[in-house]
Design a protein around this nucleic acid. Structure first.
Lengths: 212, 212
DNA sequence: GTTGATAAGTAAGTGTCGCTAACATATGTA
DNA sequence: TACATATGTTAGCGACACTTACTTATCAAC
C-alpha cells in the first residue's frame, strides 16, 4: 500500500496521475454501464491518453478491476467505521449504523457493489480480497462485541456478527435488485436494522456501560 | 413461454436444437470462465455451428445471458420446492430445506448464481426477472406462512420471509466468496438454518397441525 | 410432386477491443 | 551532461460482436 502511494506520487511525470484517473474512469464506467460494460479503450479516452498507456500502470484488464474493487472495499470499510463512530460505542445504534453504511454503499454505488462481490470469487490471488474483506467484517465484529460486552474473538460474537452481516448483505443485494418492490409496506432501513439487530443479538447485557 | 417451446420443437430443422445447446454451452462457460468470460464465438464452436448462427435464435449477447439466467432461476425455484416437499408442510424443516436448496444452488453453480444477481439489475426489461424472482420468493413465503399458520399475503409473513431470504441470500454469497473461511468453527448449513430459522420465526403456534 | 414462403444455416466483412512490440520523450540522478 | 528508467506514442495482431448477402432445408398449399 505504501509502495503504491509512493509510486503514485512519484510518477506524476507526464500526465498528472494517470493511474488514479484511470481507476476513477473505470469506477464511473462500471457504475453507468454495468460491471462488465467498460473497456480500457473507453477509460483511456476519458483520461485523454492512448489505449496503450494503461498498460504502463496495470498488467491487464483484471488488474484494473482488482484495483477498483480494492479501492471500493477500502471506502466501504471507512464508511462503516464512520457510521459506527456516530453513536456511543456498545450501543445498538452503533451496530445498526454499520449495517446502514453497508446498505447505503450498495444503493449509492450498485455497480461497484456488484463488482466487489462478483469479482472476488473469480480471482486467483484472492488473498488481498480476503484480507480487505476480513477487515470489513472486523468492523461488524467490533460493534457486535461492544454491544454484547464480550471479547471480539469469542465464537458467539463471531457467529452473531456473521449472521448480521449475512442479513445486511442479502438485504443490500435484494434492494438494489429491486426484488423488494411491491412486497409489502415496511419500515425504513434504519428501524429495520434496529429491530432485526435486537432480534438477533438480544437485549444488551446489564453490566455493560456505554462508552463514548 | 409456450411460444418458445413450440418454436423450439418446430425448429429442429438442421441442427437438432441449437437454441437449447447454446444455452447449455453458455451455462458451462459461465461456470468455468466466470460470468463475463464467455463468448458467442466459443459457444458456437462448442455447438458446432458458425459464429453467426446464434443470431438466428437470439438478438444479441445480453439476450442469451437473459435466457440462461431465466433458466437458472426456474431451476432454482424447482430445487427449493423439491426441498420443501421432502418435509411435512408447516414444519421448520420445510423452511430450512428451502434455504438449503438455495445455498446448494449457489455452491454448486456459483458462476450462474453470481450471474443471476449480477445481471437482473443491469437489465432494461427487468419485468421478466422480477416475475421469476417473485415466484422464487413465493416459495419462501409459502413455507413461512405454513409454519406460522398464517395467510401468505399477511404483512408479518412477508416481512419474516424477507428476513429469512436476506439471511440465506447473504450467507450463500459470502459462502461462495469464501469470506466465511477461518472465522470460527460453525455448525453445518442445516443446523445453522434450523437455529436461525427458529430464532427469526419463533416457536411454532400451538394450534397448528403438520399436514403431510 | 411442385412451388413458394420461411426458418436456419454459412461466408465474408466492419468496427472495436485487449494486448504487444518498437519507438519516443520526459524525469531524476550520478 | 549522460544515463537509466518511467511514461507515453503509433502500429499492428488476433478475437469478438454483430451485419449483410447468400444458400439450403423444411413445411404448407396447391
Amino acid at each position: 500500500m505504501e509502495e503504491v502511494a509512493t509510486r503514485m506520487a512519484k510518477t506524476a511525470y507526464h500526465h498528472g496521475d494517470l493511474r488514479a484517473q484511470l481507476i476513477a474512469a473505470v469506477r464511473e464506467l462500471v457504475e453507468t454501464h454495468g460491471p462488465d460494460g467498460f473497456s480500457i479503450a473507453e477509460a483511456s479516452r476519458r483520461a485523454g491518453v492512448s489505449s496503450a498507456a494503461p498498460y504502463k500502470h496495470f498488467k491487464d484488464k483484471p488488474e484494473i478491476l482488482r484495483a477498483v474493487v480494492l479501492d471500493a472495499m477500502e471506502r466501504l470499510r471507512q464508511n462503516m467505521e464512520e457510521g459506527a463512530a456516530q453513536y456511543p460505542r456498545g450501543s445498538l445504534e452503533a451496530v445498526s449504523a454499520v449495517g446502514l453504511a453497508y446498505i447505503e454503499f450498495a444503493v449509492s454505488e450498485p455497480g461497484l457493489f456488484r463488482l466487489v462481490f462478483g469479482l472476488s470469487g473469480a480471482n486467483d490471488d484472492a488473498t488481498e480480497f480476503l484480507e480487505k474483506g476480513k477487515r470489513c467484517f472486523g468492523v461488524v465484529v467490533g460493534a457486535t462485541a461492544a454491544y454484547l460486552d464480550r471479547p471480539a474473538d469469542s465464537d458467539d460474537v463471531q457467529e452473531l456478527a456473521y449472521i448480521l452481516w449475512s442479513f445486511v448483505h442479502g438485504h443490500s443485494f435484494l434492494t438494489i435488485d429491486q426484488k423488494r418492490k411491491n412486497l409489502s409496506p415496511r419500515p425504513d432501513d434504519w428501524s429495520y436494522l434496529m429491530s432485526v439487530g435486537k432480534g438477533i443479538l438480544g437485549e444488551r447485557p446489564e453490566g455493560a456501560e456505554e462508552l463514548d
